[in-house]
Design a protein around this nucleic acid. Structure first.
Length: 436
DNA sequence: GCGATCAGCT
DNA sequence: CACAGCTGATCGC
């Protein structure tokens, strides 16, 4: 009842106000059309889209946070201040800076903090201004999806150029690009502009595009374009192989393989079993045989993963370096990851503790962890976690932290279930907890 | 019938 | 192993 004054991306009963960072499903788990616990605060764009994801939602519950103003909210028990800042993740996505009796808390939601992106530059200015009024940020709830130095990938603009290059070099092919229900609009728009073509999307997605204000670029008429954006879950190597029996078609996944640093790929993954395993897992190994070394070599650059399939490192999450820059600006006292599981999950304090303000607790934690494991061992942990089958030995601190002391013996499935339910935060009293 | 949860998939 | 997401089965209300 009294626990959890406010909830961010969490929808269980008991809070006085609820905040939605953006409309992706892993942040709306528990939110339904009939949800009505308390007012829901979100960005204008999210408010516009939400009724189409949750038909019949009680719109009188919605409260708009304008992304460039500080809002003062009078709750039942206290007054809080909140500032929304563009998170540059997907349309409508925001970070939330809270100030109140509990101190100062910054919840990043999912975010992309590109150095050269104009929107991120604007967001940086806003954040810097907002931080002027704050003595110290006590806690950052961080999008730690790629909070590991092995994640090193280019800006979205650079990745978009790669996609454009791939399409240009296949002038006689149909092109299929896998996207989700929200996000990667900018990629499609860059393609459309560069190649002077329209992009096909499915009808619901066209409606979303219209809601977002994109009227002329997208179409549901297949005869108008050779480039189609389709739901990512709906296409696979199998789909592409079928399509190629009718006409030449390539697929592009703006994501895909982990974007591990080249050195690691050369040294560990390409020579080892990493790619083999990935190949065996997917539907695209027509026979269930392991791929031969030759086949692996034919994959060539990480970009072309199959005769008809390309992946491009287009990410809506910050890479390691961007997270680092973000934390240098915010300098929080404490850090908490909002993503509990990933193949390379590392307790964020491990790499970023040094960027936090030095208080004794932080310092102690940091030193302890440094002592326990060297960087090299972390990489080892990552490698063993990417293994498929065999014994998935516990790989130390990171995993046991993430599994939160659940009964042992259950591994990946339990792990991924955790991921789906672990986003978001409850903020209460003078300490902030993840609830449960 | 609906929501919650889970299995399985990409 | 994933960004995030879909379908379908089952269970309780």
């Amino acid at each position: 009842m009294e626990k959890g004054l406010i909830s961010v991306d969490r929808w269980a009963k008991g809070s006085e106000a609820y905040f939605l960072s953006h409309l992706h499903s892993d942040h709306t788990n528990g939110l339904t059309s009939s949800w009505s616990h308390a007012p829901l605060f979100c960005s204008p764009v999210t408010a516009k889209l939400l009724p189409f994801k949750f038909y019949g939602f009680d719109l009188s519950l919605l409260r708009i946070l304008h992304p460039d103003a500080s809002h003062t909210l009078t709750l039942k028990s206290t007054v809080i201040h909140v500032t929304a800042i563009d998170a540059c993740h997907c349309p409508g996505s925001i970070m939330l800076l809270f100030r109140g009796d509990f101190g100062c808390v910054l919840y990043t939601g999912d975010f992309r903090w590109e150095a050269t992106c104009q929107r991120a530059t604007n967001a940086r200015h806003l954040l810097r201004n907002a931080l002027h009024d704050v003595p110290v940020v006590d806690v950052v709830y961080l999008d730690n999806t790629y909070s590991n130095p092995i994640y090193d990938f280019p800006t979205r603009h650079v990745a978009a150029q790669k996609v454009i290059d791939i399409i240009s070099s296949h002038p006689d092919h149909e092109v299929i690009i896998g996207i989700n229900t929200l996000g990667k609009e900018d990629l499609l728009i860059e393609i459309a502009r560069a190649l002077q073509i329209k992009i096909w999307v499915w009808p619901e997605r066209l409606r979303t595009m219209h809601l977002l204000g994109f009227y002329d670029i997208f179409t549901t008429d297949t005869s108008l374009t050779r480039v189609r954006a389709v739901p990512q879950y709906s296409f696979s190597i199998g789909t592409l192989e079928s399509l190629n029996r009718m006409c030449p078609t390539i697929g592009i996944l703006p994501s895909g393989l982990p974007w591990i640093k080249k050195s690691l790929q050369k040294n560990e993954f390409l020579s080892g079993s990493f790619l083999t395993r990935r190949y065996k897992r997917g539907k695209w190994s027509a026979n269930s045989e392991a791929q031969s070394d030759d086949q692996i070599r034919n994959i060539g650059s990480p970009e072309k993963i199959h005769e008809y399939m390309y992946t491009v490192p287009y990410s809506d999450h910050s890479n390691y370096e961007e997270i680092e820059e973000f934390l240098k600006l915010v300098q929080p006292t404490r850090l908490k990851g909002i993503v509990a599981s990933s193949s390379c999950y590392i307790e964020p304090m491990y790499y970023f503790g040094r960027l936090c303000r030095v208080d004794q607790q932080t310092q102690k934690l940091h030193e302890e962890q440094r002592r326990k494991e060297s960087c090299k061992r972390e990489i080892e942990a990552v490698r063993s976690k990417t293994s498929f089958g065999g014994d998935n030995v516990q790989t130390g601190r990171d995993r046991s932290k993430a599994s939160k002391g659940r009964s042992s013996g259950v591994r990946l499935r339990r792990f991924s279930r955790l991921r789906r339910t672990h986003r978001g935060a409850k903020i209460q009293g003078d300490n902030c907890s993840d609830q449960e």
